[in-house]
Design a protein around this nucleic acid. Structure first.
Lengths: 200, 200
DNA sequence: GAGTGCATGTAATTCGTTACATGATTCA
DNA sequence: TGAATCATGTAACGAATTACATGCACTC
């Protein structure tokens, strides 16, 4: 999914300026969506206008110069076509998981625990935000949209549970048993130590 | 996190060729990691070699030409430095959530249900794979690495639960109540209908 | 001897970000 | 009057993908 669809999606809620679109993604970026830069937005809006998917609507002469964009019929069409296309399966790019998967015994597990604690903090913040959002009296969330809020809640709660579990396992040294059919752990440590890496 | 770190991480397990690195990410890409193309790998390996982080190791003259890369002392250092750096908080880019958040009443909810069903299928597959992996007798997974497997399990199970819940809510029309302080739903539908978008 | 899998690489292109450049309006 | 916020835009750069190009080795 691209920036183009995101812009159409925001404009479906209400006509917006480029500046506004960015702001919209700024606070909702709270784990559900994601940000984008002006360097993407403005050129894309221009392109969408050329393609006839959006058009700037007249601005009352009252304030500063700004271009409020609205969807055209073609723009609505494009947006709804996209809604109907089966969404791509999300790819998880989680640096913490990558680090855990490649962690090895010569590394201090206390460092990994500190990574987990940092993750916990951020996840708790996010969960707080997500829970407060639907009743903050400001934001617009449709009934169907609430399902995605519910998703975020379940996901973040599962994550917190896992963090607790993981820290506990690391601290008390009863990790689940992995699988090492070729004695890789040994070999890895030998290769590494053979290079005599200076610690820290 | 970049391709560079991913390559170092794979090489920490065992010396590998470029081809091999891709293969490694191919099957593990099962939701935990992610793929990368030859167009990224080979140029990056060359760059890493120039920087002295990896070096090609002699190949027995037995087979085809191939370059097996191994980490240098500097390479190990770099890798472990990266392990110690606090991981970035993952950004969720989930097209399904985006679509749900911007869904509107003039859209057939049966289409959304079909999106959910497709998601369910893929998630079930992935969960099956993730559960089987640690005991397939082939793959290497360290004890710490098992924690990330556990994460995937919890996350995917939470997702399945949410999918059931969501389909049920959509089918029986008892969605959670959203929030619409400015009567946006009305306005949206009016704007859209004003453009007389042809259905389908 | 044809197809598949192993193996390496480059060139063009896409998508997006960062940094830069500018300026009006609001408010303390 | 000076800072913060609203507002628009471009140019340079970066990271990665896709498509292209090549060729050996093994197996049926």
């Amino acid at each position: 999914m691209s920036i183009e669809q995101s812009i159409l999606a925001v404009l479906s809620f209400w006509p917006s300026t480029g500046y506004n679109i960015k702001a919209e993604f700024e606070h909702k970026a709270a784990g559900l969506y994601w940000g984008m830069s002006y360097g993407s937005i403005y050129p894309k809006l221009k392109k969408l206008e050329e393609e006839g998917l959006v058009h700037p609507i007249e601005q009352e002469e009252g304030g500063r110069k700004k271009k409020l964009y609205e969807l055209t019929a073609k723009g609505w069409q494009e947006f709804e076509n996209w809604l109907q296309l089966p969404p791509a399966y999300p790819i998880i790019r989680d640096e913490l998981l990558m680090k855990m998967s490649t962690w090895h015994e010569d590394m201090e597990s206390s460092i990994l625990i500190s990574h987990l604690l940092k993750r916990k903090e951020k996840t708790e913040d996010l969960l707080g935000f997500v829970k407060a959002w639907p009743t903050n009296g400001i934001s617009y969330i449709s009934d169907v949209g609430m399902l995605s809020i519910r998703y975020a809640e379940l996901r973040l709660e599962a994550e917190l549970k896992w963090i607790e579990e993981s820290i506990h396992a690391l601290e008390n040294n009863h990790l689940p048993k992995g699988q090492d059919p070729n004695g890789n752990t040994e070999k890895l440590l030998a290769r590494r130590r053979g290079q005599s890496v200076k610690g820290k």
